[in-house]
């Protein structure tokens, strides 16, 4: 609230062209986004984000589990993974453009390439730190194969996996926008840059507000999901005995 008031005070008194008042932005917001743009720009953006995020999850958990389970594989893979993680994902956009063109596949690939690392590394860590007594219990009572994976390995590592997914979500939103700024004909990032180039300043601001709201909504959604999946973990105090 204070933030909006402050914004309003500065913009109303200064009245520069580049800083419209909150009222103007709010009015523009409705007419800009509750229109065809919702279908043309917002939904494709979200669809690419979802596709990239799901792919990154499958890839990250799928690779993370075997690496976490095998000390030898881990010793080989971990330095490489840390290196890839250290590369800022936006820098991959030009490279992926060269390799995969400028269509949807490129944007999804960029999102995957950024999101996969926190998921992968957290999964490795979660699987590595699985409780030995529980592991012995599984062996004694014949819990093996897929059942072991589903009921023990993934559940036991889920606090770390969820932490990785949370990091990946914010990275994914950033990459969604950045990938659209480079070469695109639709999407939120593209539209915001377009508004800026055409000096539609209030529209540009409304796009930024929309992104903020989207990010907030997604994180609320994620927190709800996390609470459900990890209720046992929070129930016992979030700490492993």
């Amino acid at each position: 609230m204070l933030l909006v008031l402050g914004w309003w005070a500065v913009s109303a008194s200064g009245g520069t062209f580049y800083l419209p008042t909150p009222g103007e932005v709010a009015a523009t917001f409705a007419e800009t986004w509750f229109s065809q743009r919702l279908l043309d720009d917002v939904l494709p953006s979200l669809a690419r984000l979802l596709a990239g995020y799901v792919l990154a999850t499958l890839l990250g958990v799928g690779l993370g589990v075997p690496i976490g389970l095998s000390p030898r594989l881990r010793a080989t893979a971990e330095p490489v993974l840390e290196f890839f993680r250290a590369i800022p994902p936006p820098i991959l956009v030009p490279l992926v453009m060269l390799l995969a063109g400028i269509d949807n596949a490129m944007k999804v690939l960029v999102i995957v390439s950024g999101c996969v690392w926190p998921i992968l590394l957290n999964t490795v860590e979660g699987v590595r730190a699985l409780d030995e007594v529980l592991s012995d219990t599984c062996r004694m009572y014949g819990v093996r194969g897929l059942s072991r994976l589903r009921r023990f390995t993934l559940r036991g590592a889920s606090p770390q996996i969820m932490a990785g997914l949370r990091q990946a979500l914010s990275i994914g939103i950033i990459l969604m926008v950045i990938s659209e700024m480079f070469a695109s004909s639709s999407g939120l990032g593209f539209t915001i840059v377009l508004f800026q180039r055409q000096f539609q300043i209030a529209e540009m601001w409304s796009g930024i507000v929309l992104l903020g709201l989207l990010g907030f909504a997604l994180s609320v959604l994620f927190r709800w999901l996390e609470r459900r999946v990890l209720s046992w973990y929070y129930g016992r105090g979030g700490e492993r005995a």
Binding site: L134, D136, M140, R151, F152, S158, W232, Y233
Partner: peptide, 22 residues
């Protein structure tokens, strides 16, 4: 050779031998 199916164990660390998510 491995854990026999006819054998059950009760471990000392009860806090760690039960699945907390079940």
């Amino acid at each position: 050779k491995g854990p026999p199916p006819s054998m059950a164990v009760v471990f000392q660390e009860y806090g760690r031998s039960l699945f907390p998510w079940m």
